[in-house]
Design a protein around this nucleic acid. Structure first.
Lengths: 141, 141
DNA sequence: CATCCAGATGCAAATGAGTCGCAAGTATGA
DNA sequence: TCATACTTGCGACTCATTTGCATCTGGATG
């Protein structure tokens, strides 16, 4: 079932000097396998499927460490909970289906450009930004 | 600064059938006077300056009621706390100075348009959206 | 291969924003 | 003025996340 795919996070962690413990190995595998934006509870559930007994505090601490190192990205959508995704090569924004919770990533160079323009107009430089579209399926008519 | 003698929120509340109690009167005055995006703790502090003894739970409940009626807007920036501003006539987004916490409102019709375009491309309609630019002053060089 | 110890873990308790139940108080329409 | 449904204060509660601490262990060192 679990064919060992490539697990880039483990290598990245080693490079950064993080100890690879049994718990972390599993957490990193779960992250590498995730193609969505799970919160910590969900991550903990997925970790538990592979290796029961990992404490949720460990998941929290690991996520904090990875986020501090920039290996994963932290998001807070409108439910107020922390969510994570492996750090993407290129910045993107999110479109959230309010009915299903599904999250779709998108990117608009034009919006990025306009944001820069606006920040400049006020004399600022952008440190980070957040664009979330809360959407539902277009009604037929 | 201009002291607002007009207190539009009180009239709006009456129209919507909300009882105007002493506590609410003060809270509404504070909201009418605010030109920023205070969280509940800060609102409670400002209320306490005018009228000590109002419980913070009352502030929470009042804000929830006002938000449900659409008289104020609720925001959550990156500190994760609830913030409020009187409902604006026209939608705007926020630029947050990460060094000072200052919040500046801006509007870009072009970005609004692009957002619509993106949502449509995926077959969705936008329910709401959130655009926040976290910025700092441009360094001289 | 054995040792060592900073860093990692499990667990329970703490934290902190926000909510809720309830008894007591009060605004408002009749 | 009365009746009553809405509000309030207060403390207890929730729930996600963090933290203190005793114990354990990865992996560098000898």
């Amino acid at each position: 079932m679990t064919k060992p795919k490539h697990e880039p996070l483990i290598d990245l962690c080693r490079q950064r000097g993080l100890r690879i413990t049994g718990q972390r190995r599993v957490i990193l595998q779960v992250l590498d396998a995730a193609d969505d934006h799970p919160n910590v509870e969900e991550l903990h559930r997925r970790v538990g499927e592979r290796e029961p007994g990992v404490n949720i505090a460990t998941v929290y601490r690991t996520m904090n460490k990875l986020a501090d190192l920039g290996l994963i990205e932290r998001h807070i959508f409108d439910d107020g909970r922390l969510r994570y995704e492996p750090a993407p090569d290129e910045h993107h924004d999110h479109l959230i289906n309010v009915d299903t919770g599904e999250v779709i990533e998108f990117r608009s160079d034009e919006i990025e450009r306009l944001q820069e323009e606006i920040a400049q107009k006020y004399g600022f430089e952008i440190v980070s930004h957040k664009l979330e579209l809360y959407v539902r399926l277009r009604k037929k008519r």
